[in-house]
């Protein structure tokens, strides 16, 4: 690893473009990383209706990328998980453009929160494989290591020093203490088990305290469901996508009045299944990074860690 003075790096990045500092305050409750790739409200197209001459459709231009400085490893990993949906099969051009333009400077997490459980997912607060550049704050300096080519490019022109053995030792000690502060939930085998639990009665118990607001899904860095709506003005209008939540009844309500997920029980089941069964089945990865945002934002203390423990305890017929 290399090292650099934080101020020097920041000056360099400021010159490069739109720098967004995430390192100064805890990013809560919303995930800036999610919003930077999948904004809560995003224009898809504008249209103008020219009498009988037809319709003119215009796709908005991109606004250029951002340098996100101080992204936590969990949030950077979350973007990788979003890629699985947005960059596979039919590529989502709006997402792709931001993904290509944004540069993620990941900062190892020295002080995990009590709600963190990232280590349950095979990585940790010091995992250096996400985002474009990995950094560790060792106090006087940043240890720094490009992860992608985009990351290397962002560092071009900077003089980096070699990290000394004592720097690395400092990092190791920070890492140990951070990892030690995190509670790991053992989720081994949960996705296979959930497949057999669709009709289990436990969902009603789990869903009892949930009031079906969208707080957990909106703060979640991996929840990506959206709605598409038109806004009409005289002779023109626009189509936009806005975040939606599987917790809302109208999310799945059909025009006929039929709702395949009529109560909070089915909706809770879908949310958990999506993250812990469907995502693993489709992509081999859990759709959760263990950042704990949903736990902190929940108005009724629905704790996903506790839910996973409960689900683990349920006995299912083989």
């Amino acid at each position: 690893m290399k090292k650099i003075e934080k101020e020097k790096l920041l000056r360099h990045l400021e010159e490069k473009g739109n720098l967004v500092r995430l390192d100064r305050a805890r990013q809560d409750p919303l995930s800036v990383t999610k919003s930077s790739h999948l904004p809560q409200e995003e224009l898809l197209l504008l249209f103008r209706i020219n009498g009988d001459k037809g319709v003119e459709i215009r796709v908005p231009e991109g606004r250029g990328g951002k340098i996100l400085f101080g992204v936590s490893p969990c949030e950077a990993r979350a973007v990788d998980l979003l890629d699985l949906t947005f960059l596979r099969d039919r590529i989502d051009p709006y997402y792709k453009r931001k993904r290509e333009d944004n540069v993620l400077f990941v900062l190892a997490c020295n002080k995990p929160r009590s709600t963190c459980f990232c280590t349950s997912f095979g990585y940790g607060p010091f995992s250096g494989k996400f985002g474009d550049v990995f950094m560790v704050d060792i106090g006087d300096n940043l240890l720094i290591d490009p992860v992608t080519e985009k990351g290397s490019k962002a560092l071009e022109g900077l003089e980096l020093e070699e990290a000394t053995p004592s720097d690395l030792e400092k990092m190791e000690s920070l890492k140990r203490s951070a990892e030690g502060a995190i509670t790991t939930v053992n989720i081994e085998g949960i996705s296979e088990k959930l497949k057999k639990m669709f009709l289990d009665e436990i969902w009603a118990d789990l869903a009892f305290k949930c009031v079906n607001c969208g707080a957990c899904t909106y703060v979640c860095p991996t929840c990506y469901c959206f709605d598409i709506q038109d806004v009409e003005r005289t002779n023109w209008g626009y189509r936009e996508r806005v975040w939606d939540s599987c917790m809302f009844p109208i999310y799945s309500l059909e025009t006929s009045g039929h709702n395949p997920r009529p109560t909070g029980v089915e909706r809770m089941r879908n949310r958990i299944m999506h993250k812990f069964s469907y995502y693993p089945e489709l992509y081999g990865e859990y759709g959760c990074v263990g950042c704990g945002r949903c736990i902190r934002a929940c108005p009724v203390n629905f704790d996903i860690r506790e839910a996973l423990e409960t689900l683990k305890e349920v006995e299912v017929a083989a």
């Binding site: 039919r90 989502d92 990506y224 469901c225 959206f226 598409i228 996508r241 939606d244 799945s252 059909e254």
Partner: peptide, 13 residues
């Protein structure tokens, strides 16, 4: 049939 929006497997519902 189900409620649909994007038609390309992104929007989720």
């Amino acid at each position: 049939e189900k409620r649909m929006k994007c038609g390309i497997g992104k929007c989720g519902r």
